[in-house]
Simulated scan of single mutants.
Amino acid sequence: MKTLITASALLLCSVAYAHNCPNEMKAIDAKLGTSPSLSMQDMDKVKSLRAQGEKMHKEGKHDESMKALGDAKKLLGL
């Protein structure tokens, strides 16, 4: 019984985590909409990481997606 409860909790956490990718993308997009003062190199990197995050999210690779999106947010100061 404990195993079933633990498995259910892990499944719910992973589903909730997977659905956070779009929220992270929205936060990045909102910040990009304010024309942040970044170097051209950093801006290109943010856009690349944002695109990678979306691609990985669509492929079901949510851990990798959150990593890329997190890196983009760090560059943006979020």
Rank of each mutant, 00 (worst) to 15 (best):
L12Q: 13
H57I: 02
E54C: 09
A72S: 09
L38P: 11
S14P: 15
S8Y: 04
D29I: 03
K73F: 05
M1A: 13
P36E: 04
D29K: 10
P22V: 04
Q52M: 09
H57C: 04
I5L: 11
K74Q: 09
C21P: 00
A68K: 07
S8M: 05
A30E: 12
A27W: 02
Q52V: 06
M43D: 04
S8Q: 05
K67L: 15
L12C: 14
R50D: 06
K26I: 07
E24K: 00
V46F: 00
L32I: 02
G70C: 01
I5T: 09
H57W: 07
E64P: 01
A51H: 13
D44T: 11
L11Y: 14
K26Y: 10
V46G: 00
A68N: 11
G77Y: 00
K47M: 11
G60H: 05
I5H: 10
L75Y: 01
Q52Y: 06
R50Q: 11
K67Q: 13
S14R: 14
H19N: 12
P22E: 04
L11A: 14
K31P: 02
K2L: 13
Q41D: 10
L38G: 08
A27Y: 02
M66Q: 04
P22N: 04
K31T: 06
G33E: 01
E64G: 09
M1E: 14
L69Y: 03
L76S: 03
L49H: 12
S8D: 03
S65P: 00
D44E: 12
D44R: 15
I5F: 14
N20W: 15
L12S: 13
C21R: 00
M25Y: 03
S35F: 15
Q41P: 07
A68G: 09
D71I: 00
S14G: 14
K67S: 13
S39T: 14
D29V: 03
K26A: 10
Y17S: 07
L4T: 09
M40P: 08
G77V: 02
L38N: 10
D42H: 07
H57T: 04
E59K: 10
L76H: 05
L69C: 08
L75A: 03
M25D: 06
K45G: 10
L10G: 12
Q41A: 14
L76F: 07
K74M: 07
A18C: 10
C21H: 00
Q52G: 05
K31Q: 07
K2F: 14
E24Q: 05
C13R: 11
M66V: 01
C21A: 08
K26E: 08
D71Y: 01
H62I: 07
M25Q: 05
